[in-house]
């Protein structure tokens, strides 16, 4: 599904990603952990095609397409979804309007039939319920005045609506109370399927208690420095990152899994 090879990327001329490799196959869940400022959000932004995040070297193939040549909106339409670490507000634009426009853009591109207003409303209400957001939220401006946890749940709600192929979740579990964490995890598990993949960026084991990852990677200083199974996350939780950073080389391509 996604194949990233030797990816290097700069923000405003400063190199942040320094030769990163990762391969994600359909149905897999990958967790990426790593110290603050190591480049995790940068990776998700580069994959999603954000302005100013310039890939300078390497390749990114998504379902056989060269992702780096696509416009951000076309990447989304191809099925890449990014749940933002810091969701932004769009005052005055209701969640409903936003979601409807978004879904229409996606379905048009994917040559799927558009939903009728009634079907759309039914779907939106149902997904709201799944993430435990009152349907009143649909009428409010996008993230406008939402609490931190509500914003995160709203990201999951959007993900459930759009049914992407590859979901990048950038610290969606941060700042959530226990119940909200469960809601987010349920949302992810609900979508898990043999042809859908996830990259979960997280600092904590607790999300991974609910969503079993197939692989765990450690990203430090713009590179994946270690990869393993779900047990690696437990080890990290216990020992932190310092034991890895001191000298451990990236093991002989553990990512070719």
């Amino acid at each position: 599904m996604l194949n990233v090879k030797n990816l290097k990327a700069k923000i405003d001329g400063k190199e942040i990603l320094k030769g990163l490799n990762i391969e994600v196959k359909p149905g897999e869940v990958h967790a990426i952990m790593g110290p603050n400022g190591s480049g995790k959000s940068t990776l998700s932004n580069v994959l999603a095609g954000r302005d100013n995040y310039d890939a300078t070297d390497g390749t990114v193939m998504f379902e056989g397409k060269d992702l780096l040549t696509l416009l951000p909106e076309d990447r989304a339409r191809e099925g890449i979804f990014l749940a933002f670490q810091y969701p932004v507000e769009i005052p005055g634009v209701s969640n409903l309007e936003f979601l409807k426009t978004s879904l229409e853009c996606l379905h048009t591109y994917q040559k799927k039939p558009l939903l009728s207003a009634v079907e759309f409303m039914k779907l939106a209400r149902e997904k709201c319920r799944l993430v435990d957001l009152d349907t009143g939220f649909l009428k409010r401006g996008v993230n406008e005045g939402f609490s931190g946890g509500e914003k995160k749940r709203n990201e999951i709600m959007q993900m459930l609506m759009l049914e992407p192929k590859l979901c990048l979740l950038d610290e969606t579990d941060s700042g959530l109370d226990i119940d909200a964490l469960k809601v987010v995890a349920d949302g992810i598990n609900q979508l898990r399927s043999p042809d859908r993949s996830f990259i979960l960026i997280t600092h904590y084991q607790r999300l991974l208690d609910y969503v079993q990852p197939d692989f765990v990677h450690v990203l430090a200083d713009g590179k994946i420095i270690k990869s393993g199974g779900s047990e690696l996350a437990l080890e990290l939780e216990e020992k932190g990152y310092s034991w890895l950073e001191s000298g451990t080389e990236q093991s002989a391509n553990p990512l070719k899994v």
Binding site: P72, E73, A76, F84, V88, I90, P91, V93, T101, C105
Partner: peptide
């Protein structure tokens, strides 16, 4: 903001439509 435009793009909405949506909301 660039963040707002990127959010819209990331949800499949082209920038032109995004600006008009944001302005209409305003």
């Amino acid at each position: 903001s660039e963040d707002q435009l990127f959010l819209c793009q990331q949800r499949g909405i082209d920038p032109e439509k995004a600006v008009s949506m944001i302005v209409n909301g305003f």
